[in-house]
């Protein structure tokens, strides 16, 4: 029972981690919470559904195309709704993000209706039993694919020149610009990568729960944001750690306390972390310069 719940928690945890990476990468550079990120995740899920159901594509192609399309959406959103507001008051881009979120949700409702859509795939319904734990195929896919994606991202930011430039940008936008880094490209890249990861997470969630619907981004977004904060917002390993931790805690809490109020658990965690250690587990404290 416990181990099974642990595995279930881990599954949802890596998904949170994938979404949290998008929050954390954007926050790292722009110091802004992209409120529309949960809805980008939802859009990725719907696009994957669309490619499979209407264009009869195989699953892997749906992943690739949805990730590509969603990252384009992410880049366009930044270009249109956030970039013109970079020098404005902090609250201005937040409100704009809220507008983007509202737009995406209502667009999805217009395109696909408000109801839940099942995911038309036979894949992932089978199970594998190891000892007392039962893995569904989709759980294995989620765990393996998420691991590969996170490893890939980690190697990208630590081993490549572009990745290093991106880290430099997140340390200081001005300094990076002075060193000749095209910071606008780096910001676009952060949105592209974050959105692509969210799209992958969206498809996996769609298959896992066999449900895709326009408002699925709210709670997923809040939970993933909680994960990002828990791990230390702005920190990429932090987002991974936070996501996994949150998924496990939430699932155990849901199993042993109450499933109806599962989201209350993550919300409570968010409040506690923000009160006690707003920099999260792996975040750095920044000195408030006056």
């Amino acid at each position: 029972m416990f181990l099974q719940q642990l595995v279930n928690g881990l599954t949802i945890g890596v998904i949170y981690a994938l979404i949290a990476l998008g929050y954390t990468m954007v926050y790292g550079i722009l110091k802004m919470v992209n409120f529309a990120h949960g809805d980008i995740f939802m859009f990725g899920s719907f696009l994957g559904l669309f490619f499979m159901k209407h264009l009869h594509m195989p699953l892997y192609l749906a992943f690739l195309l949805s990730a590509a399309a969603t990252s384009a959406i992410g880049v366009v959103i930044e270009r249109v709704a956030y970039r013109p507001l970079r020098t404005a008051d902090r609250i201005v881009p937040l409100i704009s993000a809220l507008g983007v979120s509202t737009f995406l949700v209502s667009l999805a409702q217009k395109l696909w209706g408000t109801e839940m859509h099942p995911f038309p795939t036979a894949f992932g319904r089978g199970t594998v039993t190891v000892g007392s734990i039962t893995f569904s195929e989709i759980q294995i896919l989620i765990l393996v694919l998420s691991f590969i994606l996170m490893l890939g991202l980690h190697l990208f930011v630590t081993r490549t020149k572009t990745g290093t430039a991106m880290r430099a940008t997140s340390m200081s936008l001005t300094n990076a610009a002075l060193m000749g880094i095209n910071t606008n490209h780096m910001i676009s890249l952060a949105f592209a990568i974050g959105s692509a990861l969210a799209a992958c997470a969206g498809i996996m969630v769609g298959i896992y729960y066999n449900a895709v619907y326009p408002t699925m981004g709210y709670m997923a977004g809040i939970n993933a944001f909680t994960a990002a904060v828990l791990g230390g917002i702005g920190s990429i390993p932090g987002a991974m750690l936070g996501g996994i931790l949150l998924g496990v805690v939430e699932n155990l809490g849901g199993a042993y306390i109450s499933t109806q109020y599962q989201s209350v658990i993550s919300f409570t965690i968010l409040i506690i972390v923000l009160m006690i250690r707003p920099t999260g587990i792996l975040g750095k404290k920044d000195i408030n310069k006056v």
């Binding site: 249109v80 709704a81 704009s96 809220l98 507008g99 509202t102 949700v105 209502s106 667009l107």
Partner: peptide, 9 residues
Amino acid sequence: MMLLGLAII
């Protein structure tokens, strides 16, 4: 709601 979102942006 779509228009509302656009109006906000």
